[in-house]
Simulated assay, not measured.
Amino acid sequence: MPNLKPVRTFALLLTLSFAAPTSLLRADDPPPLSAGQTLYVPTYSSVWHGNLNDRGRPSEILLSVMLSMRNTDPKYSLTLTSVKYYDTAGKLLREYLQEPRTLGPMGTVAYFVEHQDREGGTGANFVVTWRSERPINQPIAETVQVYHWGTQAKAFISRGQAIHPHE
């Protein structure tokens, strides 16, 4: 009589793999729906480059910054309730919203930091809070940093991520 234990074990594992929770995300799955979040978006109002000078500091390039908030839901609106800009030390520099702002389906809004504004520094960030009346596709929050001189420009992006606020 053949040993059926390996066959039974394989059948059990196969059955369990189909019964596994579907809530586990695969890399190609869309993120879960949300009715609101607080997002941390890194940005750089300046970057260091080159060699150290005689004071032991590198040269600094000031960058302009655009925060882009994109509603990725094709059917429902979201409301931005706060857009705060912080410096490298974590000091609040400004709140961009005086009142909530609604973004319609697939809508985008941008907030700007001028290139001569050196307050933010190399570790500046935005903290954005949004909400919706129902769970929707999560928005995309990105900053675009740009340095322009003559006929050339350099640009790069930073993408935000959801955080748990401690209020």
Score class of each variant (00 low, 15 high):
residue 85 Y to C: 07
residue 36 G to L: 01
residue 47 V to P: 00
residue 128 V to D: 09
residue 117 D to M: 13
residue 80 L to F: 01
residue 60 E to Y: 00
residue 118 R to Y: 09
residue 89 A to W: 12
residue 129 T to E: 14
residue 106 M to T: 09
residue 94 R to N: 13
residue 99 E to C: 10
residue 55 R to K: 14
residue 127 V to D: 10
residue 63 L to C: 13
residue 55 R to S: 08
residue 36 G to R: 01
residue 37 Q to H: 12
residue 132 S to R: 04
residue 132 S to A: 10
residue 68 S to H: 15
residue 115 H to C: 13
residue 56 G to Q: 04
residue 126 F to Q: 03
residue 55 R to M: 05
residue 31 P to W: 15
residue 36 G to P: 02
residue 53 N to V: 04
residue 104 G to D: 00
residue 124 A to C: 05
residue 104 G to I: 00
residue 52 L to W: 05
residue 109 V to S: 05
residue 45 S to L: 04
residue 129 T to Q: 08
residue 50 G to C: 02
residue 105 P to I: 04
residue 102 T to I: 05
residue 85 Y to S: 06
residue 113 V to G: 06
residue 97 L to E: 07
residue 72 T to H: 09
residue 52 L to F: 07
residue 120 G to N: 12
residue 87 D to T: 01
residue 54 D to L: 15
residue 127 V to G: 07
residue 75 K to C: 11
residue 107 G to M: 08
residue 117 D to N: 07
residue 114 E to I: 14
residue 40 Y to C: 15
residue 132 S to Q: 02
residue 77 S to P: 15
residue 38 T to W: 11
residue 115 H to L: 11
residue 119 E to F: 14
residue 109 V to T: 10
residue 99 E to M: 10
residue 79 T to E: 07
residue 56 G to L: 03
residue 35 A to I: 06
residue 67 L to V: 03
residue 76 Y to P: 08
residue 98 Q to V: 08
residue 130 W to E: 03
residue 83 V to K: 03
residue 134 R to K: 15
residue 62 L to V: 08
residue 62 L to H: 11
residue 33 L to Q: 01
residue 67 L to Y: 03
residue 48 W to A: 13
residue 38 T to M: 10
residue 41 V to P: 04
residue 74 P to K: 03
residue 59 S to P: 08
residue 90 G to P: 07
residue 93 L to P: 00
residue 78 L to A: 04
residue 127 V to H: 09
residue 45 S to F: 07
